[in-house]
């Protein structure tokens, strides 16, 4: 599970105050909102890459607020993928296993097979297409079997066909790895297909809507990346000032 409890972040003029969010174990949550509203910032908070002024971060039932990113057990795929240019695909998939002194065994080949990148294992990132690079970044993040996967606009740079394939893959990954996913996007189609639960940041407030009820809001969609949702009816959903 992923729980952000009363998080307050301030950076210059940007402020997110008293924001809370809870994703149950094994759920696929999508976080939406306008560009610059703080979606990616919340993801970085969960990963431990951004300090907070107050609040708690709980991942897999453990309070990790004071833990460094390396000890939080999160797989993180940033928007630009941030593949390592000097490493091959095989070395990307084995990177975390090496660092964490975990047994590599057949994990790399299994993961490559599952993600459909077996033929790319000896290639470097410069020779990969957008969809292939996306799969490598996903494999790198999943390699050490983290309980939590954080995806920052993972489909934004993909063409329509590749996006559809990757969405299928993301759903399969969630089921196969049993991982709890928090996926940041501003594409309604991704939320419609992927989300078990949906969160929306609007005017500094975060609202949760369980999967059954947000379809109508998505359909109404009077703005491409702006979804007006009613107050949360979920037991975990909170609004914040």
């Amino acid at each position: 599970m992923i729980e952000l409890d009363s998080i307050t972040i301030s950076a210059g003029s940007f402020v997110l105050r008293d924001v809370s969010l809870r994703v149950g174990s094994g759920e696929y949550a999508v976080l939406m909102g306008r560009t610059g509203c703080g979606k990616s910032t919340l993801l970085e908070v969960a990963a431990g890459l951004r300090s907070i002024q107050s609040g708690r971060v709980i991942l897999a039932c453990q309070d990790v607020t004071r833990l460094p990113p390396s000890q939080r057990g999160v797989g993180y795929v940033p928007q630009d993928l941030a593949l390592f240019p000097t490493l091959t695909v095989r070395e990307h998939l084995a990177f975390a296993l090496h660092v964490r002194r975990m047994k590599i065994g057949t994990r790399v080949t299994e993961l490559a097979s599952f993600l459909g990148i077996t033929d790319l294992l000896n290639r470097k990132p410069s020779g990969l297409s957008g969809g292939e690079a996306q799969r490598v970044a996903l494999g790198r993040a999943l390699s050490f079997r983290p309980p939590v996967l954080l995806l920052d606009e993972p489909l934004s740079a993909l063409d329509e066909d590749t996006r559809g394939d990757t969405m299928d893959l993301l759903k399969r990954v969630q089921k196969h790895e049993g991982v709890t996913v928090l996926h940041v996007t501003h594409a309604r189609s991704e939320a419609r297909i992927l989300a078990d639960c949906l969160f929306v940041i609007e005017a500094g407030k975060l609202v949760e809507k369980s999967s059954g009820g947000y379809e109508s809001n998505l359909e109404r969609g009077d703005h491409e990346d702006h979804i007006q949702l009613p107050r949360s009816t979920s037991p975990h959903g909170r609004t914040s000032e």
């Binding site: 460094p68 990113p69 941030a82 390592f84 000097t86 990177f95 975390a96 660092v99 993040a141």
Partner: peptide, 27 residues
Amino acid sequence: IPTRREEVALTLGCSRGGAFWRVVLPE
């Protein structure tokens, strides 16, 4: 060299020094 690569290395289990040694220096 984008800092994002080091941040990803941190989430994969590297210390700050490890991220420098394994990701930044080779690049």
